[in-house]
């Protein structure tokens, strides 16, 4: 999952970005509205975390312009403005959620997960595919009810494929959603991560991989029992 974080306070921005990365999200961040608008148009994000009072064009204007451009990326407004009028204004401009500073990290993560689920039309944080149990809330994966160790990136790829189960996901799309802007498009981080992931989630009783490669198209997660 790739998140755009727009926050002008350096220390806060860095702390949130670090927390999100540790949780497994790919994070791009900026401190002003102009860059935020440009980045949102250039890249595909699963969630945008947007402060309202930022230099350049303010957060609400960024949101308004995005909606005018038919960009329906879920947006959570992070702001110190706590009046009902401010909240109503933000939500009416097209925000999907509103979080008032100071907020708890857990709450932020929970809201991000909820928005992700909503965007993939999943109602519960648990996804069961054959022998795998994926808990999108705890960010854990169980194989035959036994916890397996995945890196944050590996988990993110698995979750993304599971969310889009049955659909072919291109390598570029995975890069866009799982890796931040620092990852070079020419690198093979996706391929190597998929390779590691296949090995870790492989079912010893069944040789068929859950994640299959569609040559020239990308990857697809298919249930064996389907």
């Amino acid at each position: 999952m790739r998140i755009l974080l727009v926050e002008d306070k350096n220390r806060l921005r860095e702390a949130i970005a670090q927390a999100l990365k540790q949780t497994g999200y790919a994070v791009d961040s900026t401190d002003n509205g102009n860059d935020a608008l440009w980045m949102a148009q250039e890249n595909s994000y699963n969630i945008i975390l947007l402060d309202i009072m930022i230099p350049g064009i303010d957060g609400l204007e960024v949101l308004e312009k995005l909606r005018e451009l038919n960009d329906n990326t879920p947006v959570i407004l992070l702001t110190a403005k706590d009046t009902i009028a401010d909240r109503v204004k933000g939500l009416r401009k097209g925000a999907d959620d509103y979080l008032i500073k100071p907020f708890a990290l857990e709450e932020l993560l929970a809201r991000i997960e909820a928005l992700c689920r909503r965007s993939y039309q999943k109602s519960t944080p648990s996804i069961k595919i054959d022998h795998l149990d994926i808990d999108t809330s705890a960010k854990t994966v169980k194989k035959h009810n036994k916890l397996i160790e995945l890196t944050a990136r590996e988990y993110a790829i698995l979750e993304y494929l599971a969310m889009k189960e049955g659909s072919v996901i291109s390598r570029t799309e995975i890069e866009e959603h799982i890796y931040d802007e620092l990852v070079s498009p020419m690198s093979n981080v996706v391929d190597s991560a998929i390779c590691n992931l296949r090995r870790k989630i492989a079912d010893e009783d069944n040789n068929e991989d859950l994640i299959q490669t569609r040559r020239g198209q990308g990857y697809i997660l298919v249930r064996k029992d389907s």
Binding site: K9, P102, A104, L105
Partner: peptide, 12 residues
């Protein structure tokens, strides 16, 4: 709120 948010987030 902003400095408190910074303190809280950094601590968490």
């Amino acid at each position: 709120r902003t400095p408190i948010a910074e303190l809280k987030m950094m601590s968490e």
